[in-house]
Simulated scan of single mutants.
Amino acid sequence: MLCPYCHSPLQETAILTKSDQQATTYECFTCGGHWFPRWLANDISLSQANNADSITPQTSINPPEFPRCPECQNRLSLIKHDSVPRGLHVYTCPQGHGNFFPKGELIQFKKAQEAKITYHQVWGIPIKSIFAVLLPVALVLSLAVGIPLTTRQVQQSAETRISADEVFSSPIITQIPPDSISLSFSTTLTGSTTITLYQNNQPINTYTASSTPTTIHTTTLKNLVPNLPYTFTITLETATDTIVSKPYSLSLSP
């Protein structure tokens, strides 16, 4: 794949998500830009963003008028949304393949995202929509093509149903002192959701995230013990199917 800005080859690079899962990004060592598969930029920490954006460009370039997606070659669009502060340049693929961050923009986006989450947490103000802090790639897809497509797939045989990874966004995990965790996530299918919490691979509690069908879900996991490793899964109940996410990891800091 070629960089949307300078057309140099993108280099595949491993990165850790907030839940310590290894994922893949694509870095340009010529101009310092980053290509992130959809949703991944929402699920990395500020320190991981800082490490990625520490690349020293080999040259400075003039941005092209129309940067293109390295996967499908469609024109990338600048994201103009509440989740991206004015003045930052974050591009998205209209087909949902991912996001492009020119040099320096990734760390600024993550700083703004973390600051917004912290502000709501400190002041006790609920985030009305998960898309107020998340890059809205999946929102665009679900409104444009995702919901009709996945509804048809759910009605088909198991071999052709949409995978769980395409249904669930990566959860935003926010600690609420002294012993609680706030979870926020979205789904490309409309349904109700529950969270099953595990310790040592044994279920210890179930929480309702959404009791009525929706695509935006939030809940609070309470009475957690600091420094103990937990995992959780999300179960989505739609009108026609039950879909369970992959396991996610979390730990409460003391």
Rank of each mutant, 00 (worst) to 15 (best):
Q155E: 13
I15T: 09
T24S: 13
D241R: 01
S210K: 00
Q95A: 15
T150I: 12
R68N: 10
I234L: 10
T92K: 13
I162G: 04
G32C: 04
T174P: 02
G33Q: 02
G87P: 03
T30Q: 12
R161H: 07
C31D: 13
H97E: 12
I117V: 15
T215M: 12
P178M: 06
G32Y: 03
T13R: 10
Q11R: 11
S157N: 14
T242G: 00
C28I: 05
D43E: 11
N227R: 08
T56W: 01
R86P: 04
I204P: 03
I44C: 09
T196Q: 10
Y119S: 13
I204G: 07
E105I: 04
H81A: 15
G191Y: 00
K246E: 07
A239S: 08
C69K: 07
Y91P: 07
C3D: 04
I172D: 03
P85T: 11
I117M: 09
L10Q: 06
V225N: 07
L106V: 11
Q22R: 14
F185V: 00
T240F: 15
K103N: 15
K246H: 09
W123M: 15
H97A: 11
G33H: 03
G124Y: 10
H34G: 04
T92C: 14
T59W: 09
L141A: 11
S253Y: 07
K128W: 03
P178A: 11
Q175E: 14
C31S: 00
F66E: 14
I204A: 07
L139K: 12
S19N: 11
G191D: 02
P9F: 05
H7I: 05
N51Q: 15
S142D: 11
T118K: 15
S54H: 05
Y207V: 08
P177G: 06
T25A: 15
L134S: 14
T92Y: 13
C72N: 12
Q22T: 11
N205P: 00
T233N: 05
K103L: 10
Q21K: 12
T231K: 10
T193R: 00
E159Y: 14
L88E: 06
G87H: 04
P102H: 03
K18N: 13
K111I: 15
Q153Y: 05
L197S: 06
I216T: 06
C3S: 02
C69Q: 06
A23Y: 05
P4H: 04
D179R: 08
S163C: 03
S47Y: 10
P102C: 06
T208G: 00
G96Y: 08
Q153T: 02
I107R: 04
E166V: 01
N50A: 15
P213Y: 06
V140S: 09
S169N: 08
Q22V: 11
L183H: 02
F185H: 01
P64G: 05
Q73R: 12
A115R: 11
Q113I: 06
Q95G: 10
N62P: 03
S157H: 13
G33T: 05
V84R: 02
I176P: 04
